[in-house]
């Protein structure tokens, strides 16, 4: 079973890698990350913050585009090319087919995120070199440089601040959380594509759910705290939102990491667990729907 899933996954990955749209998107991501270092009108510590924000933003934005677009075209393309009939005529279960496709997309996302993260790390390293050179140039021209131990102490403090900001080990947490969010978006797209009949419908619906997901926590708060005051229709709407749409806003904890605040690993694991279980549920639902879809 695992062998069949892996074969389908490998094939899905190869097909996706050959697609121009996804490659162009990835290129856009790399350009966005590289361009983030051109904020010369702000101070060096702000430049590092901006690079981190734009780098992670680009990984998130391009990643979600790749996730949704690659999943949305999976089933329609298979149906259009009629390859699905050939595959399902073989001893391959529908669940294996769907899971194989999903694993392929996850591999594609892993590859994309890894490539963008390497570019991001390179830009950060360059920014650190620039920052350290700027700090040194500032201190060298200060009267008393080289003689005053107090000045040396302050210089070391400034250097440590830049180095700590750039080589923040918490960036690993940030990238992992972004990746988990992308996998969830891909699973949502997979669920929609199992009952959708067109590529556009899947893309638009998934984007809608993704955006609403960022407001789910607000809807939940209103439903739980003011639910009694709402009309039946409003209450039902808020309840449906709270119970069905994933909470994407929790993942904005990445912003805290980028601001230099400490996010403990146990909280990150909790979020990763939430994402994994939610993805599992979405895949189970996708499989149930796909099983009775007429092909």
């Amino acid at each position: 079973m695992i062998g069949r899933i892996l074969v389908i996954a490998r094939n899905t990955l190869l097909e996706a890698v050959r697609q121009k749209v996804l490659n162009v998107l990835l290129l856009f991501g790399l350009v966005m990350i590289a361009a983030s270092s051109y904020f010369s009108q702000v101070a060096i510590d702000q430049q590092i913050k901006f690079v981190k924000d734009f780098g992670c933003g680009a990984i998130g934005l391009i990643g979600v585009c790749i996730a949704i677009l690659s999943v949305a075209q999976l089933l329609p393309q298979e149906l259009h090319n009629r390859t699905i009939y050939t595959i399902l005529a073989k001893p391959v279960r529908r669940s294996e087919f769907l899971l194989g496709k999903f694993v392929g997309v996850v591999l594609l996302l892993t590859l994309s995120v890894a490539l963008m993260s390497i570019a991001f790390a390179a830009v950060l390293w360059w920014q650190e070199t620039q920052g350290l050179a700027a700090v040194q140039a500032d201190y060298v021209h200060t009267p008393g440089w080289g003689k005053s131990p107090e000045l040396t102490n302050m210089y070391q403090h400034d250097v440590a601040q830049i180095v700590n900001q750039v080589r923040d080990p918490q960036m690993v947490e940030a990238i992992l959380l972004i990746f988990a969010k992308l996998v969830m978006a891909a699973a949502m797209a997979m669920l929609v594509s199992t009952f959708s009949t067109s590529f556009i419908f899947t893309v638009i619906t998934t984007c809608g759910i993704y955006l609403i997901g960022h407001m789910e926590s607000a809807a939940r708060d209103v439903w739980l705290s003011h639910g009694a005051q709402a009309t039946f229709g409003q209450g039902l709407f808020l309840e449906m939102l709270s119970l069905l749409v994933p909470d994407m806003n929790s993942f904005t904890i990445v912003d805290e990491i980028l601001d230099g605040n400490v996010v403990p690993w146990w909280h990150t694991w909790n979020l990763l667990g939430y994402s994994a279980v939610y993805t599992g549920v979405l895949l189970a639902l996708s499989e149930l729907i796909f099983e009775f879809r007429e092909i």
Partner: peptide, 22 residues
């Protein structure tokens, strides 16, 4: 649905305790 709701409320509470107001 109820597991999801409880999990999300827990996550939100953790983030509030960590002072991540959002």
């Amino acid at each position: 649905a109820p597991i999801k709701l409880a999990w999300e409320i827990g996550l939100e509470r953790q983030q509030d305790e960590l002072r991540y107001h959002g």
